[in-house]
Each structure stands twice: as C-alpha cells, then as structure tokens.
C-alpha cells in the first residue's frame, strides 16, 4: 500500500458519563464496533462531561456514543453538546445516546442534536448500520 492510499477508518468514542456504574452495554457495543472494523476508544466509567468533550475533540472521533442508565441524561447530554460546540466539534460528530431514555426525553435529546437514541432491545447490526449510513462526511 502506497503512502497516498487513503485509509479511512471510522473512529468512535464510547462514553460513560456521571454516576452510573453499569458498563456491560458499553463493553458489548465497544466490542461489536471493533468487530465491525471501527476504531473504538472507551472512556471508562464515571467520566465528567468535560472529559468526554476533551476525548471527543482530541481523538477527533466520527461518532460519540453516550451510554446513560442513570436517568441523568437531561443534565449530562446538554453539557456535552455545549462543550463540543465550544471546540467546533459539534457539527461533524455523530451523536448517539444509548440507555434507558423515556420517549418524551428522546424528543428533547434529538432537538439538542442527538441523531438517534438506542434503547433496550436495539440490535448491534442496526446500530452499526446506522453509524455506517450516517457517519459525517469530512
């Protein structure tokens, strides 16, 4: 492979924010994304919104998947969105939320700029396909 051959790889940040110790789902998704050929950066547990922003900006990820099972999405997601905007990273990052999100809140999150919300029962293939279809052009 020559130097000029382009090698685009989809980069994802799988993030756990706030006081939420349930990371099985995040692990499973990280693994599925890896097996789909994506590069996955996993944040680890109990991250502050600023940390997620820092990671998303520096790693220049195409996809930011936030996993929240604590019910604090209404507080945490806006903070992340603000942070991404501060660093000009909001426009070209595909924002996904996974977890237990009531329907009303889902609409609010989408109004904020979240592209899709995946609740219990969402399939891996569905998610991977969604990412492939909607990954921002750069």
């Amino acid at each position: 492979m020559g130097v000029d051959q382009e090698q685009r790889t989809i980069r994802c940040l799988v993030a756990k924010v706030g006081l939420d110790g349930h990371d099985r789902g995040a692990h499973v998704i990280s693994r599925a994304f890896r097996d789909a050929g994506f590069e996955v950066i996993y944040s680890g547990l109990h991250r502050a919104p600023e940390e997620i922003v820092q990671a998303a900006v520096q790693e220049d990820v195409d996809v930011l998947g936030i996993s929240i099972l604590s019910g604090a999405h209404d507080t945490l997601v806006p903070k992340i969105v603000d942070g991404l905007q501060e660093y000009d990273a909001f426009e070209d990052t595909l924002l996904l939320v996974g977890g237990i999100i009531p329907d009303d809140d889902e609409d609010e999150l989408k109004a904020l700029g979240v592209s899709e919300v995946f609740g219990p029962g969402a399939s891996m293939d569905e998610m991977i396909e969604f990412v492939r279809q909607n990954v921002p052009e750069r």
């Binding site: 590069e39 950066i41 996993y42 600023e50 820092q54």
Partner: peptide
C-alpha cells in the same frame, strides 16, 4: 477487521479536562 479498542485513554485520570495535555 482492522477494528481496534484503544484503551490507553482510560488511564489518563490525572489530566481530566486539562486541554493542555493533548492525548
């Protein structure tokens, strides 16, 4: 698959939110 899980960032606990550390 070319896929990877890049896990080194998890250990960067001492530089939380400090943008002057570019990881």
């Amino acid at each position: 698959t070319g896929g990877a899980v890049l896990g080194d960032r998890i250990r960067m606990g001492s530089n939380v939110g400090d943008m002057e550390v570019f990881f």
